[in-house]
Each structure stands twice: as structure tokens, then as C-alpha cells.
Design a protein around this nucleic acid. Structure first.
Length: 279
DNA sequence: ATTCGGACCTGAAAGC
DNA sequence: TGCTTTCAGGTCCGAA
């Protein structure tokens, strides 16, 4: 569910509340949520203070003192809830972190159980060997170079976390619409002007989505259980058969590999078609 | 070597 | 009304 803007929104909300809190205990309610670490290392969390929260792609990192970190991924439906300890625990809550002040808890909830938490030494957690650069940090020249030796369809590449980190299905469609590029465009056909349009579009869309605190279509809520406002600014995602906000033509839906792509067939004309029609 | 489908799970919404 | 099917913001794995 959550892509870069949603994860960023969660971290910005959670950071000031968690920083400095000392862990008093934890509850593991669904064992499957724990990956690549065992319960023993979780015991080490007790007595540790939260130093800071970080995001890398769609991953959330919670750094505690003594070089200990929690590494979390929400996948489709995971969420953090920071709430008063006395609030009843919702169904699908898999992990709870309690703090010394006894006032609040951090709860990890995930209906579909795809999400994960692991506990590791801090120096290890940034070793994501297969994670591409951050879209809001990568310079244009480095972004441009990422395409060297890459082939395939443009949208698939944007979704590939080892190419660039943090973009998912919603924002890939919105970015491609902004850049006026068809999702199936072979990357080998992109021209210089299109690379810079894509880079600008990526930054524009992701920044705007963060500004509006992410997109809530069905599941996403931030750590205070609030919805994100970017759903009111989506221009193509989920808009099949509605008219394009730019040219009025009907938005179409394309399915590749079980996932939907929404695009405007006029604003995002397919490149090989355009080439054919020029003959 | 890419690409595709299926798997992992649950529940809401749509279809009949 | 109620049963069945489809779909979902992610990623991994194995088979073409």
C-alpha cells in the first residue's frame, strides 16, 4: 500500500513523538511478522531509547541507542498506530512496542500479513544491496545514467526498486501522466527531452504527494489514523473512463502482470504507434 | 536474461 | 438477500 510519500508522511508524524522514548516492553502477537531476526534480539530492545526514524525507499528504520534498529516494511496494508495504551487493540495488530512513560504505544497492524519487522544492528540496516537511489535526492545526471544498460518498458522500470527506490503503482501512473509518457514506452526509445521531463515529473509528483500527506484510497492512514489528501489530486490513477484533466479524452486502463495502469491515450501516446503514423 | 503468473493473506466491492 | 468473483498501494520465486 504505502509508497514513498505515505512512508514519509508516517515518519514525519511519528518522529517527534517517538524520539527520546525508552522502550519498556514489547508484544509479538503474530510471529510471522518477524523476519530475519528472532525473539531473542527483540529482548534487547528493552531499555533502549529511540534516537531517530529514517526512510529508505518504502522501508522504515527506527534507530535506537546501542546500535539497535527496527527495520519495517508495510507492503500492501501495513500501518503504524501511535496511540494511548488504554485504547483497545484492533484486530490484525501484530506487534506492540510499549514505552517507559506508559502513556502511549506503537502498534504495527497489517490485515494482509505481508508486512515485516526485523531487529538488527544499526550498521547493518542500510545495506540494501538492491535498492536504487532516492527519487528526491538523485541528480538529473545520475538519474539519466541509471538508464544506461537498462531495457524494457518504462513503467516496469519505475516500479523496480533496484532501479529507483520508493515508487509504486499509484505514483508511477501519476508521474507518467505528468511527463506525458506511455507506460509501455521502451526505455530504449526515450529521448533527452523525455528524460528530463520524467525527472521533473517524478520530483513534482512525489513532492506534491508528500505535501498533501499521501494518498488514501482504501487502507492508508498515518500514525495518527488520519487519511492522506493526495487522493483529491490524482489525475489518472483509478480514473478509468473519466475524462483526462488535460485534454478531455477518456482515461484508459491497461493490465500488465495483474496490475492496472491508468493513462490518457492522447496525452501519453504510445511511442511506436507515433512512429508508425509518421510514415 | 527478461517476463509472466502465481503465491503470500484478508476483506471490500462488484457481479450475478 | 446471499453467494461468488474480482480486486487491492508490494515483493519474491520459479517456470517459460
Amino acid at each position: 500500500m504505502p509508497e514513498l510519500p505515505e512512508v514519509e508522511t508516517i515518519i514525519r508524524g511519528l518522529s517527534p513523538k517517538l524520539q527520546g522514548l525508552e522502550v519498556s516492553s514489547f508484544k509479538l502477537l503474530f510471529l510471522g511478522v518477524l523476519r530475519n531476526s528472532d525473539q531473542k534480539i527483540l529482548e534487547k530492545l528493552k531499555g533502549k531509547k529511540v534516537i531517530r526514524l529514517r526512510r529508505r525507499g518504502k522501508w522504515i528504520l527506527i534507530d535506537l541507542d546501542s546500535n539497535l534498529s527496527l527495520v519495517c516494511h508495510f507492503k500492501m496494508t501495513g500501518q503504524f498506530l501511535f496511540c494511548p495504551s488504554e485504547r483497545p487493540v484492533d484486530k490484525h495488530t501484530h506487534f506492540i512496542l510499549s514505552f517507559k512513560d506508559r502513556m502511549h504505544e506503537l502498534r504495527f497492524r497489517d490485515v494482509r500479513k505481508f508486512g515485516s519487522i526485523s531487529c538488527r544492528p544499526t550498521p547493518e540496516v542500510l545495506k540494501f544491496p538492491n535498492l536504487g537511489p532516492e527519487p528526491l535526492r538523485v541528480s538529473f545526471s545520475r538519474f539519466r545514467k541509471l538508464f544506461l544498460s537498462r531495457r524494457g518498458r518504462l513503467k516496469n522500470l519505475l516500479l523496480n526498486q533496484s532501479f529507483i527506490a520508493g515508487i509504486g503503482n499509484i505514483y508511477a501512473d501519476e508521474i507518467l501522466f505528468e511527463a506525458k509518457l506511455h507506460p509501455l514506452t521502451p526505455v530504449s526509445m526515450l529521448g533527452e527531452g523525455e528524460f528530463s521531463r520524467l525527472w521533473e515529473a517524478m520530483r513534482f509528483i512525489l513532492r506534491k504527494a508528500i505535501e498533501f500527506r499521501g494518498t488514501s484510497i482504501r487502507n492508508f492512514r498515518d500514525a495518527e489514523d488520519q487519511e492522506g489528501g493526495f487522493k483529491n489530486h490524482l489525475r489518472v490513477y483509478g480514473k478509468e473512463s473519466l475524462s483526462c484533466p488535460r485534454c478531455g479524452k477518456e482515461i484508459e486502463r491497461l493490465r500488465l502482470g495483474g496490475r492496472s495502469s491508468f493513462f490518457c491515450p492522447r496525452c501519453q501516446e504510445e511511442k511506436n504507434k507515433a512512429v508508425e503514423s509518421e510514415r
